[in-house]
Design a protein around this nucleic acid. Sequence first.
DNA 1: TATGAATGAGAATTCATTCAT
DNA 2: AATGAATGAATTCTCATTCAT
Lengths: 192, 192, 192, 192
Amino acid sequence: MLKPPHDSEKKLAIEEAALELFTKQGFGSTTVPSIAEKARVGSGTIYRYFESKEELVNRIFQQWQERLYHALTDAYPEKGSTREKYDHIWGRLAAFQKNYPVAFDFLEMMYYTPHLDRESKSGRLRLLKFLNQLVHEGREEFRPLSSDALIAIVWGAFVGLVRASTTGRISLDDDLLNESREAIWKGIIHTR
Amino acid sequence: MLKPPHDSEKKLAIEEAALELFTKQGFGSTTVPSIAEKARVGSGTIYRYFESKEELVNRIFQQWQERLYHALTDAYPEKGSTREKYDHIWGRLAAFQKNYPVAFDFLEMMYYTPHLDRESKSGRLRLLKFLNQLVHEGREEFRPLSSDALIAIVWGAFVGLVRASTTGRISLDDDLLNESREAIWKGIIHTR
Amino acid sequence: MLKPPHDSEKKLAIEEAALELFTKQGFGSTTVPSIAEKARVGSGTIYRYFESKEELVNRIFQQWQERLYHALTDAYPEKGSTREKYDHIWGRLAAFQKNYPVAFDFLEMMYYTPHLDRESKSGRLRLLKFLNQLVHEGREEFRPLSSDALIAIVWGAFVGLVRASTTGRISLDDDLLNESREAIWKGIIHTR
Amino acid sequence: MLKPPHDSEKKLAIEEAALELFTKQGFGSTTVPSIAEKARVGSGTIYRYFESKEELVNRIFQQWQERLYHALTDAYPEKGSTREKYDHIWGRLAAFQKNYPVAFDFLEMMYYTPHLDRESKSGRLRLLKFLNQLVHEGREEFRPLSSDALIAIVWGAFVGLVRASTTGRISLDDDLLNESREAIWKGIIHTR
DNA sequence: TATGAATGAGAATTCATTCAT
DNA sequence: AATGAATGAATTCTCATTCAT
């Protein structure tokens, strides 16, 4: 065991600690030593993996933004109906949020922040582009709202539910998730 | 020195400058001198009106939370139909956001922050209580979702639209607002 | 006495403390807090007057380089003989070194450092240009050496004497200074 | 582990890298990792050969001071005339500077630094003692200046030429070196 | 022997807050 | 009341040194 790949264990610990603290306290109120302490590393160690606090937050954002993108796009039912696609996105979004609740909050909160660099922002835009495509293909079935507006409503409603669950007002169980999925679908489809 | 002033042009300037900076950069990344500069006052002046940066942010939050509460509850159609009540809330929310877009973003972003004190949080809860009441009274007409869930969906969808407008993806004009109001209503009402 | 011009007293104290420490220990080995302590100011105060440690060292260099320039050029005997010009320079140099021995050492040591910015270097070049002019005008009387070489010899010899005095090996009194002035003059003039 | 190595390619590489960096940037502005990188060794390796950064700089100083001493004293014309001795020193100094320009600058700059320990300083004093002896023996032929002053003038003038060459203002070729040697000799000898 | 990842004390710099004017 | 210069504790970041491999 001459050189256990305990290599980037520290990097992972730093990223996890930082994710939690940034999400809870915000970027500006989180100190580097507090990240180091939570990650159980020396504070100098953080600078062996990341050039600065800003780079750290951007790397984490990009990493999770990428994961979210793949969570939503993997096994995407390209040939399926619009409803099937909608269900796919909703289900994946719910699963992602359930598995990585902190990362989900982090992504939501950081995107509207001046701390992200161009590359981080572009990761987000890629996801929006994908969703736009989806909506555009089902255009006929939806209400006469722009793709961006439809996405904003669905995404916003989902985030609203997550926030209510975070503050303890609701419990995001499968029933609630399914019922909400139906409600929002009913909201966005065209009815004459 | 025995009685700090309670209202003045300077106090207002400080509150407005702080509102904008906190909203754009977050609490932790906003410096007191930068607030003073934007408000065109000496940084010491801020401490004549507020005990600390924390008190400042809480006063601003409480003030705007209160205004939002009144915006939604004033002239509330107590005797009207559920739909009339829904339209009232939606319309007032849209008007508030249109008149005070920065304050709206501020309230949304700050609420999920550890910088708020108990009193600030309770201001928010009062609003939620009011909305709960409304939903509860129309219970029959809504989908089988908890009041909190229904509120989360409507509020979240609205916030989603605001965010999309902030990032320039949509324009929050009356048509869009009306169409969205209908969409979300369709989403939350009970249909057999 | 409502507002004594004790204004830049602190700035002066900082500059003097920094001059001494930089000269004694070198730029890299001098810490900002040590400068603050010697100047009897808070360390944050230094940053109200100078953007960074680098700017501090450059401002001091430029200031003293300028003073040295004026010390050598003021009352310069434009119409005098070459020997009179030489005596003027020598005398002013000696006086400057006597009055500001630390600043003289500082200028000598810093010029060969990568910490100086372009403007600082150009201040030095201005002095060299002036000396070049002087030598060039007396060209006939000097040994067949380039102006720069002649300047290097005279300036270097003077610096050598200063260093020997700093380390206590000699005492730079008037007799020594005069005798040295003669010696070096004899060295650089043309003899057939 | 009981006996640190005393000579090796790595040690030489470290010493050479350190010599260059200390000379260019000064002691305090040179980091140990940067020395390691330039020497192409691990930074831990440096500590196998030297106890600390301070010891490193002192060892290098002593080593080169010793070499300079031998360069000037080897084949010294004990029985020669004063002028022959002067020419010997001048020629050896020029050769040393030509062969080891960085080491020469290093010795000049470090001697006036608080980073040298007693032993390093005494190495320098030994050289000065030797030069003093030389001057003392030729006392009659020199101007009425103390040995230390005469040494300071000659050494300083030479250093001045080196500095001018380092900054690109002159080219230290043989002609210039010879002419300068003559000039300075003329300067220091007694003339009635 | 050699390494370089890891460390934490210490450096440069920032900023919330104070206070003399 | 108002100011903003001054401060030093706190923050970001660096680096001499150690030590597990």
